[in-house]
């Protein structure tokens, strides 16, 4: 693809999310949109992970589990061990990745619907575990978690204390969007690297890939761990925003939603999950005017979308048909 065109596209996108959106929101006074957009950005990070597991040919309906784990890791470390939010962020991601290696080793041998089913079960089991563990405070959850504090390096303040800010909503938005941009940059880099090519070979034919010397077991676990890292990251930031976490914060419906975001956006495109998240979450939010019919309209629209465009929205631009 044309390199310049791509650079212009990325620059326009960055300009839009970092400059245009805050200006427009300030002009229109719709401050509540920040919360929606922040959620979109965070959920897009989670769906990026789901997308990566799809890239190795696995349908992951367990991202809610890692988001919940990441959230609890961050919450427990902050409230019970006195960690700063900024320290818990990478810890949550890395711990989720580590757990996903343990879980992934046996379950990544499964394929297709089998893998999809077990990841969905994992979501429910994580919720039940969060209810039962001694330090998670059961169904009451962990509440009044402090806002992110100051982040400084060698005495230089990089990010000021959120509690002292005039407008923490904007700060959270910028944090979430920055993380999202970094996540998708990482995803793009992975896809266009040797690792990405190897992952594609797994998606197409695992036996064939293994027969020409691709270490499929290692690759599967690696991709799953990266995916879970994203999930944990998203969960940890969510906790910081809502300042609370409950076992039901991320449930089966959320895991299914993460998958839907990917599918709706289209699985053949790096930006697919971002678009899918934006459309579905924003659509859901807009439909709240329909009150009790919200879910009915939303699900009907989804079914209709599947009937019309079963290969995702971005497949509209896919003129070659099947090509990436």
């Amino acid at each position: 693809m044309d390199m310049n065109k791509q650079i212009i596209g990325v620059a326009a996108f960055l300009l839009a999310v970092f400059v245009l959106v805050p200006i427009l929101i300030a002009a229109s006074g719709r401050w509540d949109l920040y919360y929606t957009l922040t959620s979109v950005a965070l959920l897009a990070i989670g769906s990026a992970g789901v997308w990566l597991t799809f890239y190795i040919g696995r349908i992951n309906i367990g991202q809610g589990a890692y988001a919940l784990m990441g959230g609890y890791v961050s919450a427990v470390l902050m409230t019970q061990a006195g960690f700063s939010f900024w320290a818990t962020l990478p810890i949550a991601g890395i711990l989720c990745a580590a757990i996903s290696v343990l879980i992934g080793l046996p379950i990544l041998r499964l394929r297709g619907v089998y893998f999809a089913m077990i990841t969905l079960v994992l979501t429910e089991v994580t919720r039940l575990t969060a209810l039962a563990l001694p330090f998670t405070n059961g169904a009451k959850g962990i509440t009044s978690i402090p806002l992110p504090g100051e982040l400084s390096l060698l005495g230089l303040t990089i990010i000021p204390d959120f509690a002292t800010m005039e407008n923490p909503k904007l700060a959270f938005y910028l944090l979430a969007v920055t993380l999202m941009v970094l996540t998708y940059a990482a995803l793009w880099r992975i896809v266009n690297s040797r690792l990405g090519h190897l992952c594609r070979s797994l998606q197409q034919n695992e036996e064939l890939a293994a027969s020409i010397g691709v270490n499929t077991a290692y690759l599967r676990v690696l991709a799953y761990a990266i995916s879970s890292f994203f999930g944990g990251l998203a969960g940890a930031v969510f906790v910081a925003i809502s300042q609370s976490i409950y076992p039901s914060s991320f449930a089966v419906a959320d895991s299914v939603n993460f998958m839907l975001y990917c599918f709706v956006g289209g699985l053949g495109f790096v930006t697919g999950p971002m678009l899918g998240t934006f459309l579905l979450y924003f659509g859901w939010d807009l439909l709240s005017v329909a009150k009790e019919y919200q879910l009915l309209i939303y699900s009907s629209a989804m079914i209709a979308l599947m009937l019309v465009l079963p290969n995702g929205i971005l497949s509209l631009f896919d003129r070659k048909g099947g090509g990436k």
Binding site: V113, A116, V256, M259, L260, F263, V264, M306, P310
Partner: peptide, 8 residues
């Protein structure tokens, strides 16, 4: 794709 439909 049928999974998305089923979830819908």
């Amino acid at each position: 794709s049928t999974m998305l439909l089923a979830a819908g």
